[in-house]
């Protein structure tokens, strides 16, 4: 039987949704429209200064900027590290906390701690941990006799982005552990037991039963990882500010610097528009892909 909604109900529904709609449009829709609008102007951030319409010039400058390619490469490294480092580590951690161990709660808490600390505090903490002049990692290397190792991981262009990526992995592994843990809990125990009766070993059970049934958790992880990598900012900003030189630049730092260091708000909004657009496209594509693989 089809549900009939009369006019009064419809008005009520609109009325009840209004506070949420208001809030949503004020904090999200309006700023997004402004970002796109301002990306077509040249403006120095001073209200009295006229905004000059420049069409697609900001996008042209951004896409032809050498730093765009550096940021793109670094975002690629972030995404790759997500799948190669965060995914296996968090899945492993999730399996550990699934075991009936007396230390289960301790593990769970320890793994999740980075998630409750502010990102800025984490970045600062690691900045000092990796400080090459007397920092704990430098001291450890010295203790182990690794005197030939250049311990300035954040200060060298060839290692800076990888150091940040590892800090990022440390930060997000606990959160993703929870996602996979929820997925593992939802797998019926009977399936594993049936597989064991059929003679499957642990490896076979994991790859043939557990992993395929974790698809939904993996989808959430993949979406978070890719969108998070595209929009990453605070970890890079605090540890290297995109340096040394431009070596660890990401889109977030390009956006920030163009607005607050270069007074180039139009360009900065073009970067912002690119971020919004690419995040949206990636979410749509991934959702479609996940739906397809479901079938």
């Amino acid at each position: 039987m089809a549900l009939r909604i009369d006019k009064t109900d419809r008005i009520k529904a609109w009325f009840l949704s209004l506070p949420a709609l208001l809030l949503y449009s004020a904090v999200l829709i309006y700023p997004i429209i402004q970002v796109f609008r301002m990306s077509f102007y040249s403006w120095n951030g001073i209200p009295a200064s006229p905004m000059r319409f420049v069409g697609l010039l900001n996008y042209k400058a951004f896409l032809s900027d050498a730093r765009f390619l550096i940021a793109l490469k670094n975002v690629g490294i972030f995404i790759l590290s997500g799948f190669l480092v965060i995914f296996p580590v968090s899945l492993f951690m999730a399996t550990v906390i699934q075991k009936n161990s007396p230390l289960k709660r301790v593990f769970k808490t320890c793994y999740f701690i980075p998630q409750v600390i502010s990102r800025t505090a984490i970045a600062l903490m690691w900045y000092f941990v990796l400080y090459p002049d007397g920092g704990p990692v430098a001291n450890l290397c010295e203790l182990l006799g690794l005197t030939n190792v250049n311990v300035n991981f954040l200060g060298r262009p060839e290692t800076a982005i990888y150091a940040i990526v590892l800090i990022n992995a440390w930060t997000y592994a606990g959160y993703n552990m929870l996602i996979f843990s929820a997925g593992l809990t939802s797998i019926p125990q009977e399936l594993n037991e049936a597989a064991l009766i059929d003679g499957a070993n642990g490896r076979q059970t994991f790859f043939r039963i557990t992993l395929p049934l974790l698809r939904n958790s993996f989808n959430i992880f993949a979406l978070n990882c890719i969108i998070g990598s595209i929009t990453t900012f605070e970890m890079v900003f605090v540890t290297t500010n995109g340096g040394p030189g431009y070596a660890s630049e990401v889109f977030g730092t390009l956006l920030y610097k163009n607005a607050f260091t270069y007074n180039n708000y139009g360009y900065s909004n073009a970067v912002g528009a690119f971020l919004i657009f690419s995040s949206f496209i990636m979410s749509v594509l991934l959702t479609k892909l996940f739906e397809k693989t479901k079938d």
Binding site: R156, P157, G243, P244, Y246, K257, N258, Y262, N264
Partner: peptide, 27 residues
């Protein structure tokens, strides 16, 4: 050019990361 100060400083910083002088000037 308000951004020049940071651009020059950031590019000069790359002396310490092995960049070549001509490349710094070109950038």
């Amino acid at each position: 050019m308000a951004s020049l100060i940071d651009i020059v400083r950031t590019n000069l910083q790359t002396i310490f990361t092995g960049a070549e002088p001509q490349a710094i000037g070109d950038a």
